[in-house]
Design a protein around this nucleic acid. Structure first.
Length: 668
DNA sequence: AATCGTCTGCTTTTT
DNA sequence: GCAGACGATT
């Protein structure tokens, strides 16, 4: 009945699959069949007679969760597959909090704030609490708040800095807004499980076997959550690779995997080192680089396949030529060896680096897909729609309400809103309640107060419609947008007809998604909003599938992916490793980032660096990345584009050379 | 309320 | 060198 065979696995893989009791650390190198092991392990547990409802697998991304679900479903009975919990950390937290958050004094209909909402709130708080001469960058404050939350710290009462005041105020405001940010999802869940033994025991007894993917990316709170969820039997299997830990700046703690033993004593440790992805030249290059990192478990990838071509390291005169070379190379290999465009990927440290490549690809009419950049969900009209929805579901959410209170313009002026905010603060009620308070509205002009009354009635009536037993949320939302003439307003505020149409389709798409969501699940608008906040990838993915071609992607985003032919740009001191990493003492992480990049390549890998690069508008000389000389030269083939064309030094190049020399001398 | 001009300040972004 | 934010202008 089981559709899997243990002898399809190599020895370490098999050991990882069949070790089911006690803590288990699976060190899974790049391309060593990690997902395969996880899905086999799930299937094995079920085949051993474990109740599938007692199995939980946690991942970081929805993509990973979906993939795992699909692959597991192929190996076991459908009915069993459905009972397994496969979820992201954050989605799991939402599930726990939607049931029990009241114990922490929040309401169950809390709103989830994304980074944008968070930043908006922080900005407001800064202007409110700071004195005239005080300055605080909202973005700095946000990342500091996030770091503190992840470290498990709350605002110290004796700390009189502006930052501490903002932090304290922020957390307090979130609570009155009945909102939580992404960090809170983890923080509050951990708090809940810590402080309430009955809830903790309930969740502990629900699951007997835990699995955590990408364990090197877990932060302090996530580790704590895993510890809490693991019951006395400690059947916790974690999978990860310390060498691919590249999210330290977001709070990930490599120590979670490096010191796994201190958190879960006497684990079984399995190393997966046989790589099924890359040629051995590529693997050896990667190995020689990563062994320069001090704190690591130690692992050496090997392959019994071809050694393949040497890794090319190309030096280009400048970034224009670098881009030119890469696109030419892609074009040539495509036409001469009929390599499909989707077999190529261009990897880089910073999003800005994609521009030149894009220009070249467009000029040569090569299709490409750019991964990352601005999110669909940051688009104005999508935000508006979501805020309308949020306001209906959680009227206490002032941030959402503020966004739509006068969008489209309905005669509620900034000053009126300002006064309403003051009133709400003074009275300790939400903005929406303030708008309904006769004590407030009576001080307003007739015009302003009727505008407000109309707005309140509007929201109230749609809230009622939504609450009807058979309500179709997407129809209700659509009717609301129609009533406020949202699309007309959109048309007016757009420069071109095309832009307006584009934005309108965005909204309609979202509403269609909502309608489909309702058909599939029976969870209503609230559930849909959760899903949207926690899975902002979906829309983009769909669009990406449409236009296949060369992939342009940052090193970070490339983790977990693979491509037959990889180009890795900008191996220059200052870019990779990035200047800031030296300041912050995180060069090791930059090395891992390059390691991740190298191990994405299956057949060929070309890395490049420039002699000069356009930086902040002006050309600056570049020195090759110090990582280059760490790679064992026997796996490298050097290509110097300057020598290749044997171009006599132009005056421009000579000047640049001179500049480079001067720059080097000044450093001495 | 919208638009224009000036200033600033530059990674990475699973949820 | 350019985007995004903010303030002054109509």
């Amino acid at each position: 009945m089981s559709r899997f065979r243990l002898f399809d696995l190599n020895d370490p893989q098999r050991q990882a699959v069949t070790t089911t009791s006690g803590p288990l650390l699976i060190l899974a190198g790049a391309g060593t069949g990690k997902t395969r092991v996880i899905t086999f392990r799930i299937a094995y547990l079920v085949a051993q007679g474990v109740d599938p409802a007692k199995i939980m697998a946690v991942t970081f991304t929805n993509k990973a969760a979906n993939e795992m679900r699909e692959r597991a479903a192929k190996m076991i009975e459908e009915s069993a597959a459905k009972k397994i919990t496969i979820s992201t950390f954050h989605a799991l937290c939402v599930r726990i909090l939607r049931t029990d958050i009241e114990r922490l004094g929040y309401k169950k209909n809390f709103t989830i704030y994304d980074d944008g909402d968070q930043l908006g709130l922080i900005k407001k708080i800064i202007t409110r609490v700071s004195a005239k001469d005080e300055k605080l960058e909202p973005n700095v404050a946000r990342s500091l708040i996030s770091k503190m939350k992840n470290a498990g710290l709350s605002a110290a009462e004796d700390d009189k800095t502006l930052m501490a005041a903002v932090f304290a105020r922020y957390q307090q405001d979130l609570k009155t807004l009945n909102a939580v940010d992404f960090d809170d999802l983890l923080l509050l869940t951990v708090k809940l499980l810590n402080e309430h033994a009955d809830i903790r025991e309930r969740w502990q007894s629900k699951y007997e076997y835990l699995m955590v993917d990408e364990f090197q990316d877990t932060n302090r709170l996530q580790l704590e959550m895993v510890t809490q969820l693991a019951n006395a039997r400690k059947n916790v299997a974690v999978v990860g690779d310390d060498d691919q830990s590249i999210y330290g700046w977001r709070g990930a703690e490599v120590s979670n995997i490096l010191e796994f033993e201190t958190h879960f004593p006497n684990p079984t440790v399995v190393k997966l080192e046989q790589n099924y992805r890359s040629t051995s030249c590529i693997l050896n290059a990667a190995n020689s680089l990563i062994k320069n990192n001090p704190r690591r478990r130690g692992k050496k990838l090997w392959s019994d396949g071809d050694s393949g071509d040497k890794v090319k390291i190309v030096i280009a005169p400048d970034d224009r030529e670098e881009a030119q070379y890469v696109t030419n190379e892609i074009h040539q290999r495509h036409t001469m060896h009929s390599v499909p465009f989707e077999n190529f990927a261009v990897l880089y440290r910073m999003n800005a680096q994609s521009r030149l490549i894009e220009e070249n690809l467009r000029r040569m009419q090569i299709p490409y897909r750019l991964i990352g950049g601005k999110s669909f969900f940051d688009r104005r009209e999508i935000k508006d729609l979501l805020c309308y929805a949020n306001s209906l579901v959680n009227p206490d959410d002032d941030v959402s309400l503020l966004r739509i209170i006068n969008t489209p313009a309905r005669g509620i002026s900034d000053s009126t809103v300002e006064r309403a905010m003051e009133h709400s603060i003074h009275k300790h009620v939400s903005l929406f309640k303030a708008l309904q308070d006769p004590e407030f509205t009576s001080q307003l002009s007739v015009r302003a107060s009727t505008a407000i009354a109309n707005f309140v009635t509007l929201l109230d009536s749609y809230e009622t419609k939504l609450a009807e037993p058979l309500a179709d949320a997407s129809k209700v939302m659509y009717a609301l947008l129609e009533e406020v003439k949202y699309f007309d307003d959109l048309g007016r505020s757009c420069k071109t007809q095309e832009e307006a149409l584009n934005r309108e389709t965005g909204v309609r798409q979202m509403l269609e998604d909502l309608s489909r969501y309702q058909e599939r699940f029976d969870k209503g608008l609230r559930g849909f909003l959760d899903e949207v906040m926690l899975d902002q990838e979906r829309e983009k993915d769909k669009e990406e599938d449409k236009n296949k071609g060369v992939t342009l992607i940052t090193l970070h985003a490339a983790k977990g992916l693979e491509y037959p032919h990889v180009f890795l740009l900008g191996l220059e001191e200052g870019l990779l490793p990035h200047d800031r990493s030296k300041l912050e003492g995180t060069v090791d992480e930059e090395r891992r980032l390059l390691y991740v990049g190298i191990t994405r390549a299956m057949k060929t890998l070309t890395m490049s660096h420039c002699h000069n690069r356009l930086k902040f508008g002006s050309t600056a000389p570049c020195t090759p990345s110090s990582f280059i000389k760490e790679i064992d030269p026997q796996y490298i083939e050097n290509v110097d584009l300057r020598k290749l064309f044997n171009t006599p030094a132009t005056e421009e190049a000579a000047t640049a050379n001179f500049a480079a020399m001067r720059a080097m001398l000044s450093k001495l």
